[in-house]
Amino acid sequence: MGCLSWFNMVEILVLIKQVPDTNAKIEIKDGKADLSMVKWITSPYDEYALEVALQHKEAVGGTVTALTLGPARCDKILKDAKALGVDNIARIDAPEGYLDSFSVQSMLAEACNSLGAEIIYCGKAAADTNAGSTGPGVAEKLGWPSVANVTNIIFGESSLELMQPSFEGQAKIGVNLPAVITCDKGMGEPRRANVKGIMMAKRANVDLIGVETVGGNTSVVGHASPPDKPPGKSFDGSEHVSTVVKLLRDEANVI
């Protein structure tokens, strides 16, 4: 690492979200999803974003801060991030319950500003909403470019070269900082915490970031289990393959 890096410490921010374990069954109780029994984890694509942020620091220097938004239970994923080697952990305190994209992105963008972020990484989508709105939405709020679903990165002092799937194959894209990058799998398996990291994380403090609560313009009416499909037709033995092919053509009209 050259001297320059010391004077040019890039502020790397990772947005991470705590979500129900992707193997969890979601029960509906009184018209709302009941999450009281689920195990909470770091959203899987955010683990890739954390890995990328740490690789960014290792390549060109800088400081990595992991930021989340939510109630105190979310401190767990921040401590897990700390154990992996991020420098700072911060949370925007928000109550349990629904916040729409407008509220979330407005509050995140304000915190990103106050933390002096120059590059923001996040997962390509959170495993609970599968929306993929946060990265590009925060970028728009900040007036920054964004590149989504990135699978590989070459880190420069003030720019990045990124690989992104496109219709024709893979696009190699250049972008100058500041920018928001949403991460897909591809930069190697996320590292695991070592014992020293875990011990350090136990003592680490979560910085609470105060931002003004922004109201949204949607509210939740309710949740429901997806409707069950009518029972299908089952056939025992490969001799029925031809029957199924005929059904696909004549009944389903899909081939």
């Binding site: 609970d128 599968n130 997806p226």
Partner: peptide, 15 residues
């Protein structure tokens, strides 16, 4: 759909 289709969420628009 939310939770990858394990549940459906209905929201009401106020704007």
């Amino acid at each position: 759909p939310i939770y990858s289709g394990k549940a459906h969420e209905t929201v009401s628009l106020n704007g």
